[in-house]
Design a protein around this nucleic acid. Structure first.
Lengths: 188, 188
DNA sequence: TGCCGACTATTCCACGTGGAATATGCACGC
DNA sequence: GCGTGCATATTCCACGTGGAATAGTCGGCA
């Protein structure tokens, strides 16, 4: 079974050094990797468990700090290292068929009247603008702090594609408003 | 619980006329809606089942054609109609946090050497070019056949965003090749 | 006539996710 | 010194998905 996004992130962390799951959780949040993967403590523990049964990681010890629940520390195996490389290359080689919600909403949008659609889409654009501003400032800050570009390339991609969405949408909205685009609602 | 993409598609079909699940399946494929939602017969039956327990659809009859398995025909309820409108508006109002695989792959790309990355990404660009060509011709054909633009807007969005991805990627690749972008691999 | 493969139509099971629940330790104010 | 809430650390359960299995029917071909 192919490495899921969360499994890949977790395994990549263990490629740096051995860790226990909660430490991964903290690191992922600290590095703001939760922008790229959906990180939930529950899923993370399950993912690591699965990595273990697949022999991509191994247990290197279980600390017990006082009466706290025992922390199991994991380390990556050789098999795990090659799995990371293989999976990353796979993902860089060809797009994964994905199904974003928005285009579906657009194709079903004929179920609502034009003026409501325009109102909703304007809100959507505003939200995208916020996203863009956020990524932009984060990226700017990271660059100034001298972080190597290799680590910012994901955010840069997100920025570019979000801007493209925003621009497409704003032209759609004006086209509807100027009746250049004829909105034909399908009566429910 | 919010309508999942497949549930929304199914419910939108039933807003046109009563149908049995397999008929929905065929219609979705025929209309190429499988470009926007992941359609599997299994998931579809489950989705409709759930719509039923949520009272968004009701059973209007069970035909039996010879010895074939009995087909259960469903119809949308008033509650179902408002659910469609509500969900579509919700989706048009603000983006859903989504986690595409590619930006994650980019952030983990430092695990592989520059030349391999360039090779992989070039393949990726080629695949995007294919996608673009496909959507483009399909869109052109649909426009010539006089289909109202309201039904093509989803594909148009997909086209625009895919082009944006392709363009961003091609500049990244040349930046790596010209050493404008310094690739710092992290030794595994 | 008899067989093969494709289509019709549905059911079932395994998997990954995500939210909730749990339980302890620590810092801080009152 | 005492409780309140937050951080630590993990487990558990319910849900939706997706692939496989099932099973009958129809058309074509030898």
């Amino acid at each position: 079974m192919a490495l899921t996004p969360l499994a890949l992130s977790a395994l990549a962390l263990l490629a740096e050094r051995p860790m226990h799951p909660y430490e991964m959780y903290q690191l992922l949040l600290e590095r703001r990797e939760d922008r790229f993967v959906k990180v939930r403590p529950g899923s993370l523990y399950h993912s690591v468990q699965r990595l273990h049964t697949d022999q991509l990681v191994e247990v290197v010890g279980t600390d017990r700090d006082g009466n706290r629940p025992a922390r199991t520390t994991y380390a990556i195996t050789d098999e795990g290292r090659s799995a990371v490389v293989a999976r990353v290359r796979e993902l860089l080689q060809q797009p994964v068929r994905e199904y974003p919600h928005f285009p579906l909403a657009l194709t079903e949008a004929h179920n609502i009247p034009a003026d409501e659609a325009v109102a909703d889409l304007s809100q959507y654009v505003a939200a995208l603008d916020d996203d863009i501003a956020q990524i932009d400032t984060a990226l700017e800050a990271a660059r100034r702090s001298g972080k190597p570009e290799t680590y910012l390339v994901g955010a840069d991609y997100l920025l570019a594609t979000t801007i493209a969405q925003r621009d497409w949408l704003t032209t759609l909205i004006t086209r509807i408003q100027t009746k250049d685009f004829i909105w034909q609602p399908h009566a429910l």
